[in-house]
Amino acid sequence: MKAAAFDYHRATSVDDAIQQLGAADDAKVLAGGQSLVPLLAMRLARPTVLVDLNRLADLAYVRRENGELAIGALTRHRTVETAELVRRDVPLLADALAHVGHVTIRNRGTIGGSIAHGDPAAELPAVAVALDATFRLRGPGGERSVAAGDFFFGYLMTALEPDELLTEIRWPVLPQGTGCAVEELTRRNGDFALVAVFAALTMGADGVCTQARISVAGAAAAPLRADNAEQALIGSRVSAADAGAAADRLAAATDPPNDIHAPADYRREMAAVLGRRAIQRAWAQANRTNAGE
């Protein structure tokens, strides 16, 4: 399990990185390395050049800008997970991060790496999709923004061009009265999810749901936004029956993979179970927030 040989380039700036990516045929970005280095060792990834971003300190930040939370692509999972700003403004993201691997993985893994890798079973792509995050990409032609909903295509396939860099992820701040819940089913603690549901429900003071943001990981070739479930909840009081019905809609929209860890029907069925649990927990939390607890 030793990697095939490659060239190594330590990027000194974002522009330098982009230039290096364009200069070689099979160049690849190295961020936290928690996915890429094992793939190299297995010789499943065989880049000719690795462009290492790790010295780009200006890509690691968490800050509030224009009512959004802006997180630099190179910010480590653990930094984001424990950032006060994130806990306060985008708690679903912090909750989800606690499910990514283990602390040691999160010490190194980056937000940008998780998004760029685009694993459909991973937490961050799904949360980004649920929360309508936007991704700032930079390439030789300049900068563009892509909505999370337009970014993930299929298994490990994204809108990133080979010579583009993901530089920043912008997260809308969740409104007052929002409750969040992550329900994740794994075989072992820290494993990738068989299925996971991410829910953020905003409840009005009158007990009616004003906004619902729900997504599912592990349920299709790309992270799935459960619009139909969201529509069913908005305007409802999120009774147990409402939650169940919404979760059933969510499950019906899934097209899960069949693999050694679980058959597709099981995953679909679990999407309904976890969906219901997540909706109910998010609802309860929103009510507690509204009650000032």
Partner: peptide, 11 residues
Amino acid sequence: TARSCCMLAVQ
């Protein structure tokens, strides 16, 4: 903490 198998020495 870091997994030393998931990092390159050059890094």
